[in-house]
Amino acid sequence: MQLEQLIRERRSIRKYNNLPVSQDLIIKLLQQAERLCSYDGEARWRYVYVGTPEARERLADYMVEKLQDNKIVKLVLSKVTDALHKRVLEVPASLIVIAKTDSNPIIHDQTYGAVCRIMQNLQLLGWEERIGMVWITDPMIQNERFYKRIGLQEGERFVGIVQMGYFDKAPKGRSRTPAERNWTEFVWNER
């Protein structure tokens, strides 16, 4: 597949089939994703992999925990949280991504940028193997309780969870604005 075709045809996949995802394959994809990023210095990020049935169960619990804290939600929306729990449980594999923070804005942004670029490489590499992924950052999971559960340390930030699995159907893409419409050429006029 041509690179531009790969980039244009990749979709975020939220519904997976039952084929198991190999942890070794994900490691290989991630290593290549890091190589294709070419960042300066050492890696300032880490990954927590969720692949076994037990780990999947734990992650699903953590993700809905905060919602269930709320009495009203628990009463009125128990069906919703149950459905959510079930949906998370059905995700064949998940990668929790964590990056270091820094008081220097350049290092802070550089680190976040590198890890985001690695995640894009990973999503493209996955697509080549017919593994669909979606990178989630739902507000629902952005809370101290969840961070503690996944082992986030002082000086670290939660980047997101990449859910992954093989799939049967890909959604249609939403069209993009032509780059020309967001393009300005800076021309220096000497006055």
């Binding site: 070419s38 990020w45 927590v48 992999y49 996944i150």
Partner: peptide, 13 residues
Amino acid sequence: PTSSAAVLNWRSL
């Protein structure tokens, strides 16, 4: 690049 396969900072939940 001189670096070979990256060593991932990886653990399981």
